[in-house]
Design a protein around this nucleic acid. Structure first.
Lengths: 113, 113
DNA sequence: CCTTTAGTTAACGTATTCGTTAACTAGTAG
DNA sequence: CTACTAGTTAACGAATACGTTAACTAAAGG
């Protein structure tokens, strides 16, 4: 019942802390610890947020081979693209929306004024 | 602590039933009862969903003066526009993101390979 | 080997969320 | 006035979500 691929993304972004993570990753990739201290939550809390962000495919974990031992997180553009597409579609149908409303009113009126 | 105007919107869209409302309103304005039966939730449940959608300014209530006595709900484009803008911004910085990562790696390496 | 650092998992408490049914309100029709 | 329709508010229960501290794991450094 949670099959819609966008569902998890919307759920993930509904949380302030996780949107904070996105805002930070928007600037540059960060390590988990950096995110935790910048956002003022405990490391365990951040671990779970990161899992949710990874599961929703908004965020990506990769090895920072700068010194090998660390992992950094970064955004995954494609998921944001799909998200934007959904919002776009809602926006795009706005014009149809207006005409549909006119029709609707016309239909339910007893007759022309 | 819930001052960000987009916050409520993201929270509102995180729920499946409410996204169902949006999908339906995307086609044409509906009355509360229509939404409830189409989405297979009880009227009280839908009432609360509609309040959340109104509070987040994703949805608008207006008098259907087709026959005067009923109210219908429709989408508010401007909020979706702001939502899309946020997603756009995240997407837009993707390129910067890549270069930032390159810098990051460069910085943490001991020296050039 | 022991210690430190980074991050995770475990366990737990509290708050919020979402759904239900039942009761109330407002408007329309008979 | 009474009855019906549409929608709301009230009250409640089950599930989920988020945060904490404490304990564990893994890797690197001395």
């Amino acid at each position: 019942m949670r099959s819609d691929p966008l569902d998890r993304a919307f759920v993930a972004l509904a949380d302030r802390t996780r949107r904070g993570v996105v805002e930070l990753l928007r600037q540059k990739p960060h390590r988990a610890g950096e995110l935790a201290s910048r956002l003022d939550v405990s490391p365990p809390a951040l671990t779970r947020h990161l899992r949710i962000l990874r599961d929703s495919r908004l965020v990506d974990e990769l090895v920072d081979d700068g010194d090998g031992r660390a992992r950094v997180y970064r955004l995954r553009r494609e998921t944001f693209t799909r998200l934007r597409t959904w919002v776009d579609e809602v926006e795009a149908l706005w014009q149809d929306q207006l005409t549909a409303f006119a029709e609707h009113v016309g239909r339910s009126r007893k007759g022309p004024p």
